[in-house]
Design a binder for these strands. Structure first.
Length: 268
DNA sequence: AAGTTAATCAACCGCAAAGTA
DNA sequence: ATACTTTGCGGTTGATTAACT
């Protein structure tokens, strides 16, 4: 049974204001690929007219960007990619497109989905009123306490190094602030490998195998921040960085925001 | 084997920024 | 300068698949 027929059977391919919706058929994909081959990317709203597709521009663009683009990397996120995602998320927050720019062949949607599933997986460890869960929660709490002690120890050992790095970060933050002041638009800063190396070598950047990375998840506040409250602009990110510096030098874990940004401590 | 739950992913929506007439 | 259109982004939803009971 073809996709088109199935779509008919199950009510997919809903038509809203004249546009088709729902899963794409192979035929539609073909038309879109052909359109891009001939006309190039962009002008998505003319796709319907020029390609004979009954899809709106947004839908076409999304399909192309997230699925049909020839340079897309298929398959699982590698551990290396994961470490980059973690590091950049700690640095940028939910700026998926910015993060995606540093991972060739990966889409913002893919990274977002990846993060959210991992994120969710780890926050689900929180206890509820089930007794079995309570036992697990106690165990978890003890483990977390031990981990915290371990982290604290490591932090103390690395405090000197952190201070050096913080000085470096402060300089960088100030220069970025200068930059953003003079050049307000297009301030996206793609991932810069040498920067990571600098910070990594300075603070003995941790191995990013899944277990160790997982250690940090439970500290994250439950909700993925909404568009209104997240660090959605350059200055916010930078000031969050400053929050971090305060936190390292002063009290630990005072607020959820601080807890969240403890995440970035090993990385910057 | 059947039912339930969790994980994953494609696609949609609303909003805001950028571009254009 | 302004209104309108297009594009891009992040959040969310719903369908499908896998794992578990």
């Amino acid at each position: 049974m073809s996709w088109a027929v199935m779509a008919g059977h199950f009510g997919w391919g809903l038509v809203d204001e004249g546009w088709r919706k729902g899963p794409w058929t192979a035929e539609e994909d073909k038309l879109l690929i052909e359109y891009v081959r001939v006309h190039g990317e962009g002008r998505w709203n003319s796709v319907a007219r020029l390609a004979g597709l009954n899809r709106n521009g947004k839908s076409c663009r999304l399909r192309w960007v997230n699925y049909l683009r020839p340079d897309l990397k298929r398959g699982q996120i590698t551990p290396h990619e994961e470490s980059i995602i973690l590091e950049l998320h700690a640095r940028w927050g939910n700026r998926w497109s910015t993060i995606a720019r540093s991972l060739p062949g990966r889409t913002d949607n893919e990274i977002k989905n990846y993060w959210r599933t991992r994120f969710k997986k780890n926050t689900k460890l929180s206890p509820d009123n089930n007794s079995d869960h309570k036992t697990k929660a106690r165990l978890l709490k003890r483990q977390q306490f031990q981990q915290q002690q371990l982290l604290l120890q490591q932090q103390q050992q690395q405090e000197q190094e952190h201070l050096q790095v913080n000085q470096f970060d402060m300089k960088r933050i100030m220069s970025l602030l200068d930059e953003t002041e003079h050049k307000p638009s297009s301030s996206e800063l793609p991932y810069v490998p040498q920067l990571r190396q600098e910070t990594a070598t300075a603070v003995s950047y941790p191995n990013t195998n899944e277990q160790q990375v997982g250690l940090f998840y439970p500290m994250i506040d439950g909700n993925a921040s909404g568009s209104g409250s997240d660090s959605s602009n350059e200055a916010d990110v930078l000031w969050d960085g400053l929050w971090n510096l305060d936190d390292i030098n002063g009290n630990l874990g005072a607020t959820s925001k601080v807890s969240l940004h403890n995440l970035s401590i090993p990385y910057c």
